[in-house]
Design a protein around this nucleic acid. Structure first.
Length: 903
RNA sequence: GGGCCCGUGGUCUAGUGGUUAUGACGUCGCCUUGACAUGGCGAAGUUCCGGGGUUCGAAUCCCCGCGGGCCCA
C-alpha cells in the first residue's frame, strides 16, 4: 500500500492487484502484539468483562488441525466480543504434567523412569516441555489467535502448582479427598494408576476358553467360559444367574479351580449373563470391573495376583514371575494336558487400554488417594443442566458420563513429572500428614512436614509421599486460577465461555465442573461451546498412519491463516465433525481476492466527507437504498448468529452478501454513475463507503488480517482506532431497513439478470449496447416501480432507450425457415436426404409451417414422395412487434415482458 | 449392549413445519464489462436413505427398517 496526496485533498491509493496474505499476515501479527490489542485490562473497571477459559493444550510439540479448529472458534468469539466493547480475557495455558512427556523423555534418552533420580528426570521433562511450548506458541501466533500472552501460565510452574496443592489441602480438610485402598485401573507399562477417563477401549479378537472345574467331593464337572485363564489362580468364587435351571442343584456346593486346585463356592448373582459362554462365570480379583462389584457385594477375599509391572506374583504359585501372556500360555497348556480344556473359540471383544501407550490395563488394589466424586454426582448433573450448551444436545453427554461413574476418582499417580502430593506418612503408624496452606508449594521429598510429631501416635519420624497428582488435578482449576483464586475476582468468575471439543466433554468439562463445585460450590462456566472433530479429506479420522494428515503449517502455508480460518468457520455447523477441505481453503482465498479487488475499485471513491454527509443531502437511487437496507439486515443477522455461535451461518451470509449482492450486482449497477458527471454519484460513494467498511468489520473476527489490511488501506485515515480489532462492531441502523427499497433492488436485479442471460444466449459481449428495450408491465403499479429503477437498468446494461409500458406487447411470429433434422432423416432416407433438404429450401416456410401445425407434411421431391413429421424438422421463427424484429423475455413474477428491439 | 448425532444434485454441505431446497467444488456454454481471466455471465444436474404415520401442508415432527459416525460400557 502506498498513499500519495492528490489535489483537492483527496487520497489516491495505490493498491496492489492481488492480496498477498503470506506477506501481510505476519506483519499485522507483529503490529497487534506491539499495540497490545489483545490485552485484558485489569485496571479497567468500567467495561464489562468476558472470560474465555481455554483448555490448556498438552505441550506435545505439535499443533493439530483439531486444535486449530478449536482455537479458531475461541478466537472468533474473542475478537467479536472485543469489538462489542467487552474487556476480554483470552488466556493461554499449558497442561504440562503427565505421562506423554515422560514417555517422550524416556524415548529420547533411552531410559525408564526409575533409571534417574526423580529431580533429574523432572528437569529433562521441563526442558522438553519448554521446547515444545516454544514451537506451539509460534504456530499459534501464525494462526492469528488473539491470545493475551501476558496471561500465559504453565501448570508445572511453582506458582501454578501451589494452587493445585492448595486445592488438594482444602478438599482433604473437607473430607472430599481421602486415602484408601480400592481397585484402580493400572497400566503395567507406565506402572501407574490411571483414571477411568484415561482408559480407552479397543476392539480386539480374543480367545474364549471353556474350562472344566471339578465338583469338590463328588463326581462331575461344571464348565466355565473365560477369556482370561491366566486369572484362574485368583478365582475366589464361581457364579451363575439366579434360578438358572442348569445349575440350580449345584448352588452352594464347592468346586476345585484348576490348575492350582483351590476350592471355591458356587453362588448366584443377577449380573451373570446366562447367555454368555456356559452361563457359569469365574470371579477373579480382578479380571474386570464386574469382578470388583462381585467382590464387594459378596464380601469375597482379594488375591493379589499381578504385580505393578504386570507380572505374576507369588499368589500364582508355580507360575510366579511369568508375564501375563506367558502365564496364559502355560496355564492353557497345563489344562489341555490335564484334559480340563473343553474347547476354545474366537470372540470379538473390546479391551480397556492405557490412553497413552495402548497397553491393556489391569485392575490392581494399592493404597491410593481418591477424590469423592460419587457424592457430587447429583450436583454435577444439576449444574450441567443449568449451563448453556452449544449445541444443546452435548449436555446429555456430560450427564450420561456423570451418571455412569461407579468409582471415585483416583488422583494419585506413581510417576514423576507431576504436581507432588503435599503429604508425608508417619513411619510408625502410617498416618498421613497433609501440608499446611502456608507452606505451599511443597516437595515432600525435600521439605519438612508441618508437625514435629505424629498427631496420632506421637512418633517423630516421617517419610515423604512419593506419589504425584493426576494431571487433571492441575488443569481442572483453571477457571478459579484465572480469577485469582484463592482471592476470587468476581468479575472473572464464573467464566463466560468454556469451549472445547466433543472428545473431552467427559474429562475437561466434567473435571472442571466437579472440582469447582467441590472447591467453591459453584458451576464455573456459563456456556459450553463444543466443536466437532477434524477428519481428513477422505472423511476418516485424521491420522498420520492413514496418510490423510495435514498439519496446520501446511494448511496455512498455501494462502495464509485467514483462508484456513474460513474453512474452520464454514466447514460445518457448530458441534458437527468437519472434514479438512482444501477447496474451502481455496474458496476462502478467492473470496478475499474478490473483496480486495472490489475495494481496489471502490478506493478512489471512498471519501470520508461524503460518507459523513447526512442521508438527506444525498440523491439516493433505489439501488443505493437497496444495498444499504441489505447491509443493515446483514449486520442484524451476523450479530445474531455470532451471539448463537453459528459461525458457518454468519460467515456464509457475509460471503454471499459481499460476492453476490455487493460485487455482482451493486458495483456493476453504479459504475455508470461513478464514471460520468451523474448528480447521484455521491450517493453511490456514500453507500460504497459504508458497505465496504461495515463488511470489513463484520469479517474481522473471521479474517482478522485481511480486514485489518482493508481497514488500514482505505479507512484508517478517517478513524481514531489504531486497528479494526479495537474499533466498534457495526450497529444496525433501522432507518435504512426498507422493504420497498429491497423490492426495488430485487426488481432491478431481476431485469439486469434477464438481460445478461439474453446477451449470454446470443453470445453477445456484456458491454454490447442494446439500442432499444421496452418493458411491458402487467399493472400500473409495477410500471411505476419500473420507472423508478429504469435509469439503473439502462445504465447497467447499456440500454440506449428504455421504455416502460403497461399491458402486453402485440407480438407476431414469422417463420423464417424450416430446416431438416438431419440426425433423424439421414439414417432413415440415406441418399434421399439431399432431396428433402433441397425441397425444404425451395418451399415457402409459412406454408410448410401451417401444414406442419396440422400434423404431417407430404412432399414430392426428385419424383419421390416423402412424409415428414414435426420431429423431423426444426422451425426457425422470429418474433416481431409493430414490424420490428424483437427478442422476447417473459418473466412470471411479477408478470413482465421485455422486448429487446434489434431493428 | 447403552446414549447422542447424521444420511440432501457427481463430491462436500446449509437448511427443524409453507423457500422456485442453500452454497461451494466439479461439468457444460458464452464473454476481455473502464476492480478482479487467479475473473465475469449463464446453463444442466438433487425431490431431500427406504417404508409407514401426523398435518391443509414435511427434507424438517413421530414410528419402523437400512446405512454411517462419535462417545461410553
Amino acid at each position: 500500500m502506498r498513499l500519495s496526496r492528490k489535489a483537492k485533498g483527496e487520497y489516491q491509493v495505490e493498491v496492489s492487484k492481488d492480496y498477498d496474505p503470506l506477506k501481510i499476515e505476519p506483519r499485522w501479527q507483529k503490529r497487534w502484539e506491539e499495540l497490545g490489542v489483545y490485552r485484558f485490562d485489569r485496571e479497567d473497571k468500567k467495561k464489562p468483562t468476558y472470560v474465555i477459559d481455554t483448555p490448556p493444550p498438552y505441550p506435545s510439540g505439535e499443533f493439530h488441525m483439531g486444535t486449530a479448529l478449536n482455537w479458531t472458534y475461541f478466537d472468533i468469539v474473542a475478537r467479536y466480543k472485543r469489538m462489542r466493547g467487552f474487556n476480554v480475557l483470552f488466556p493461554q495455558g499449558w497442561d504440562c504434567h503427565g505421562l506423554p512427556t515422560e514417555v517422550q523423555v524416556e524415548k529420547r534418552y533411552g531410559i525408564r523412569k526409575g533409571d534417574l533420580p526423580p529431580e533429574k528426570f523432572r528437569k529433562r521433562c521441563i526442558k522438553l516441555t519448554e521446547e515444545n511450548i516454544a514451537h506451539m506458541r509460534e504456530e499459534m501466533d501464525s494462526l492469528g489467535f488473539s491470545i493475551d500472552w501476558s496471561t500465559e501460565y504453565r501448570t508445572m510452574d511453582p506458582d501454578y502448582y501451589r494452587r493445585t496443592q492448595l486445592s488438594f489441602v482444602q478438599l482433604y480438610k473437607r473430607g472430599l479427598i481421602y486415602r484408601g485402598e480400592h481397585p484402580v485401573n493400572w497400566c503395567p507399562r507406565c506402572e501407574t494408576a490411571i483414571a477411568d477417563a484415561e482408559v480407552e477401549y479397543e476392539d480386539r479378537e480374543a480367545t474364549i476358553s471353556y474350562i472344566k472345574f471339578k465338583l469338590h467331593g463328588e463326581d462331575g464337572y461344571l464348565t466355565i467360559a473365560t477369556t482370561r485363564p491366566e486369572y484362574l489362580p485368583a478365582c475366589v468364587v464361581v457364579a451363575v444367574y439366579p434360578g438358572d435351571k442348569r445349575y440350580k442343584k449345584h448352588v452352594g456346593k464347592k468346586l476345585e479351580v484348576p490348575p492350582l486346585g483351590q476350592v471355591v463356592g458356587l453362588i448366584e448373582d443377577h449380573e451373570v449373563d446366562p447367555e454368555f459362554g456356559t452361563g457359569v462365570v469365574m470371579v477373579c480379583t480382578f479380571g474386570d470391573k464386574t469382578d470388583v462389584r462381585w467382590v464387594k457385594r459378596h464380601k469375597l477375599p482379594v488375591v493379589k495376583l499381578i504385580d505393578e509391572k504386570g507380572n505374576m506374583s507369588e499368589a500364582a504359585g508355580k507360575y510366579a514371575g511369568l508375564t501375563l501372556e506367558e502365564c496364559k500360555r502355560a496355564i492353557v497348556g497345563d489344562l489341555r494336558k490335564a484334559g480340563l480344556l473343553a474347547k476354545q473359540e474366537k470372540l470379538a471383544q473390546s479391551v480397556g487400554a492405557c490412553w497413552r501407550c495402548e497397553t491393556p490395563v489391569e485392575i490392581l488394589t494399592k493404597p491410593q488417594w481418591f477424590m469423592r466424586v460419587l457424592d457430587l454426582k447429583d450436583k454435577v448433573i444439576e449444574g450441567a443442566k443449568r449451563v448453556r450448551w452449544v449445541p444443546d444436545h452435548m449436555r446429555q453427554r456430560l450427564i450420561d458420563w456423570a451418571e455412569s461413574m461407579d468409582w471415585d476418582w483416583v488422583i494419585s499417580r506413581q510417576r514423576i513429572f507431576a504436581t507432588p502430593i503435599p503429604a508425608w506418612y508417619c513411619t510408625g503408624c502410617r498416618e498421613p500428614v497433609v501440608a499446611e496452606e502456608r507452606q505451599l508449594p511443597v516437595t515432600p521429598a525435600k521439605d519438612k512436614p508441618p508437625v514435629e510429631r505424629c498427631p496420632k501416635c506421637g512418633n517423630e519420624s516421617f517419610e515423604p509421599e512419593r506419589d504425584v497428582l493426576d494431571t487433571w488435578m492441575d488443569s481442572s482449576i483453571t477457571i478459579a486460577v484465572h480469577a485469582g483464586w484463592p482471592e476470587l475476582d468476581r468479575r472473572l468468575f464464573p467464566a463466560d465461555l468454556q469451549p472445547n471439543g466433543t472428545d473431552i466433554i467427559r474429562t475437561w468439562d466434567y473435571y472442571l465442573l466437579v472440582r469447582h463445585l467441590a472447591l467453591l460450590g459453584e458451576v464455573p462456566y456459563r456456556t459450553v461451546l463444543v466443536n466437532g472433530m477434524v477428519f481428513g479429506e477422505d472423511g476418516r479420522k485424521m491420522s498420520k498412519s492413514l496418510g490423510n494428515y495435514v498439519d496446520t503449517t501446511m494448511a496455512r502455508g498455501k494462502y495464509g491463516t485467514d483462508a484456513l480460518r474460513q474453512w474452520a468457520a464454514i466447514g460445518a455447523s457448530t458441534g458437527s465433525d468437519i472434514p479438512f477441505n482444501w477447496k474451502d481453503v481455496d474458496f476462502g482465498h478467492r473470496f478475499m481476492r474478490k473483496f480486495w479487488n472490489a475495494a481496489r475499485f471502490a478506493g478512489p471513491h471512498l471519501n470520508a466527507k461524503i460518507a459523513g454527509l447526512g442521508p438527506k443531502k444525498l440523491k439516493f437511487r433505489p439501488v443505493d437504498r437497496w444495498i444499504l437496507s441489505r447491509l443493515n439486515r446483514l449486520i442484524e443477522q451476523t450479530t445474531g448468529w455470532l451471539e448463537d455461535f453459528q459461525f458457518n451461518r454468519a460467515l456464509g451470509a457475509i460471503q454471499t452478501f459481499v460476492w453476490h449482492e455487493l460485487c455482482d450486482m451493486y458495483i456493476e449497477e453504479v459504475k455508470h454513475r461513478l464514471y460520468g458527471d451523474d448528480p447521484t454519484a455521491d450517493a453511490a460513494r456514500y453507500a460504497l463507503y459504508h458497505v465496504m467498511l461495515t463488511a470489513a468489520k463484520l469479517l474481522a473476527p473471521f479474517t482478522p488480517h485481511f480486514s485489518e489490511e482493508i481497514y488500514q488501506t482505505h479507512f484508517a485515515r478517517d478513524h481514531p482506532y489504531p486497528s479494526v480489532h479495537v474499533s466498534s462492531w457495526p450497529e444496525v441502523n433501522k432507518k435504512f431497513i426498507d422493504e420497498s427499497a429491497e423490492r426495488a433492488g430485487e426488481l432491478t436485479n431481476l431485469i439486469v439478470g434477464a438481460l445478461r442471460q439474453f446477451k449470454s444466449e446470443r453470445k453477445m459481449a456484456l458491454s454490447r449496447e442494446l439500442p432499444s428495450v421496452e418493458i411491458y408491465a402487467s399493472s400500473g403499479e409495477v410500471a411505476k416501480r419500473l420507472k423508478e429503477v429504469g435509469d439503473d437498468i439502462a445504465g447497467t446494461m447499456r440500454v440506449g432507450k428504455l421504455k416502460i409500458k403497461v399491458g402486453k406487447p402485440k407480438l407476431a411470429e414469422r417463420v423464417l425457415a424450416i430446416e431438416p433434422e438431419l440426425a433423424k432423416l439421414g439414417p432413415r432416407l440415406r441418399a434421399d436426404a439431399k432431396l428433402i433438404v433441397q425441397a425444404l429450401r425451395e418451399a415457402k416456410p409459412e406454408d410448410l409451417a401451417k401444414r406442419l401445425a396440422k400434423g404431417k407434411i407430404k412432399l414430392r421431391a426428385g419424383g419421390k414422395r416423402f412424409e415428414l413429421t414435426p420431429e423431423d424438422v426444426r422451425v426457425i421463427k422470429e418474433t416481431a412487434s409493430a414490424g420490428r424484429k424483437v427478442g422476447v423475455i417473459d418473466i412470471q413474477e411479477p408478470a413482465l415482458t421485455i422486448l429487446i428491439v434489434s431493428s
